[in-house]
Write a protein that binds this DNA or RNA. Structure first.
Lengths: 141, 141
DNA sequence: GTCAGATTTGATAATGGATATCATTATCAA
DNA sequence: TTGATAATGATATCCATTATCAAATCTGAC
């Protein structure tokens, strides 16, 4: 299912409404191939749609996360970042603590081991988040 | 090396000072076998030492994290939690999103795969953080 | 032990991101 | 078209963390 469909199905199921702002924000989110904070997204939105306020951007991001179109990325610096899940599936992050570069990583093996661990503890997994911090190849010397 | 030694070696190396407040806070942190926020720790400290202020607790936690005695646990709810690393080594977290229960998990296999992934990307790893969210055995029904 | 200089402390203010408020506007089923 | 209700945008509020600064404390030198 494509992102737009998924979002509006969610919106409808919740008894919410289809609005111009949500449409415009969703379009920009889907066109952005990196994680953005509410402030960063607001700046992007402002370039095209001066009339859309910060609160709406922030609320829409939350809605996108709730609908599963975006997921929240949190590197522990007090800022929530969001990234959409289309064109690239689940992945974890490798973050350079010097230059801030972020690489996406994925390993089937890793996912499997995690699943096993979770089952062993009697949990039902809904989501997980692995962030590895270090120095990238450029910064490590 | 024990936690106290590690902390004071760090403090000394940084040209900082050994103070009564740091000593008292460190003692309480080491006696607490779970992760605490600055506020929670402040409450604990207040029970024994009414004269120690919030700012000092907060600053000392940061120092403990910098020294490697504690590590920061951040579940993305905007609160920094800290846990000391003594008596139990590195571990990840399994968090129940319903009741808030937190289980510590560890897998050698998982750690190894992570190391391999990091190397493949040319990174040098300093730390990592894996949080798995889901429902615990009591809440999943 | 005392002193000088530097750090730490504690109370509180400032900061900053997220969320709440509320009057106005927009949506949508009937 | 309309009435009920959700959404918006500007701004206020919240809350954890961090900064500020005068007073207290620590530490090495004498």
């Amino acid at each position: 299912m494509d992102a737009r469909t998924k979002f509006y199905q969610f919106v409808e199921r919740q008894g919410l409404r289809h609005t111009g702002q949500r449409e415009k924000i969703l379009t920009i989110v889907l066109a952005t191939e990196k994680h953005v904070s509410a402030q960063e997204l607001y700046d992007l939105v402002q370039k095209k749609h001066k009339e859309i306020g910060y609160a709406t951007v922030s609320r829409t991001l939350k809605l996108l996360a709730d609908s599963g179109v975006c997921r929240i990325v949190d590197f522990g610096d007090g800022v929530h970042r969001y990234e959409h899940q289309y064109g690239h599936g689940h992945h974890d992050h490798l973050i350079c603590t010097k230059c801030g570069m972020v690489a996406e990583i994925y390993s089937e093996e890793l996912e499997e081991i995690q699943s096993k661990l979770v089952k062993k503890h009697g949990f039902v997994q809904t989501r997980h988040k692995l962030d590895i911090f270090g120095l990238c190849s450029k910064c490590k010397t």
